[in-house]
């Protein structure tokens, strides 16, 4: 698979706060990538760098196969972005917002925007101020998808939504992604959401990538060892937290465990906690 974008050793500091501290990520075209991290781990900063809203202090970005120091306007035209809390002009209706946003994208598909509004059940004649939080998020999704972007960035898009609206949003997103094959990179601190949507996952903590890979591979490589007395495995096992270790699947399988030792599979949430719970939270 070709790479949609690759971030390498990205650092970014806001005053005293080191928001990103050598973060590296690789996202392939056509995949749905879940970007997991606690609040303040550096997810939004990563997305804002990808959107060219802020610049990295150090590190390189490769976007659509092109290495670049910063994300230019022409690159931004190939990206769709849905922010955590869409800040639309309150006096504009969905239709007016579509007309306004369309002017900035040469690839804007007017019919597609109308179809998306219908599909997402967004009224096109009501002012943004009168829309609910969920509808505003769906409007943001429609605005982001109408230019048929190659890459869709979503910054905790369901953070403020109730479970029903969240499920609706997920369904529509997956439907559209399947139809289009758009690369989707979404950040979240909700493990269930990532587990449900993402094919690959990246875990970020304190501005660094702690894990990046397949969800299934992640679950296979991180397990809990329950033994009495406490058993410390040999080299090749990385202790994540207490009795949770990470190792290659072959190592897990080839290791001979003492009698009474139990090797337990973990949920993605447990794995996420093991990666992040002991770490220091650094930035937003």
């Amino acid at each position: 698979m070709t790479t949609a974008f690759h971030l390498e050793n990205i650092r970014r500091r806001f005053g005293e706060v080191q928001a990103l501290d050598g973060l590296s990520l690789r996202v392939s075209r056509g995949e749905v990538y879940g970007f997991l991290g606690r609040n303040g781990a550096g997810k939004t900063t990563t997305l804002r760098i990808l959107m060219g809203i802020v610049r990295q202090d150090e590190g390189t970005i490769e976007l659509f196969g092109k290495r670049t120091k910063r994300v230019t306007v022409s690159l931004k035209q190939r990206i769709g972005y849905v922010s955590q809390e869409p800040m639309f002009y309150s006096w504009m209706t969905a239709e007016q917002l579509g007309r306004f946003v369309s002017s900035f994208y040469p690839t804007w598909d007017k019919q597609e925007f109308s179809r998306l509004l219908d599909a997402l059940d967004v009224p096109n004649d009501r002012r943004a101020a009168d829309l609910s939080g969920g509808t505003r998020s769906k409007l943001g999704l429609a605005l982001a998808l109408a230019p048929r972007p190659e890459l869709l960035l979503l910054d905790e898009p369901t953070a403020g939504l109730d479970p029903v609206a969240r499920r609706e949003f997920h369904d529509q997103l997956m439907l559209l992604q399947r139809e289009r094959g758009t690369t989707v990179f979404f950040s979240s601190h909700l493990v269930g959401e990532v587990e449900q949507l993402a094919q690959r996952v990246g875990i970020v903590q304190a501005g660094q990538t702690r894990f990046e890979g397949d969800v299934v591979a992640l679950r296979a490589s991180v397990r809990r060892i329950i033994a009495d007395p406490v058993f410390v495995p040999s080299d090749g096992f990385e202790r994540l937290r207490a009795d949770v270790y990470r190792a290659s699947v072959s190592l897990w399988d080839s290791t001979s465990w003492p009698v009474g030792t139990e090797i337990q599979q973990l949920s993605l949430e447990d794995i996420f906690l093991a990666f992040t719970r002991t770490d220091r939270t650094v930035a937003g």
Binding site: M51, I53, V73, S74, K76, Q77, Y81, S83, P86, M87, F88, Y89, V101, F104, Y105
Partner: peptide, 10 residues
């Protein structure tokens, strides 16, 4: 709304 403008390719 400046935040919204910043997400656009301008």
């Amino acid at each position: 709304t400046q935040l919204f403008l910043e997400t656009l390719p301008v």
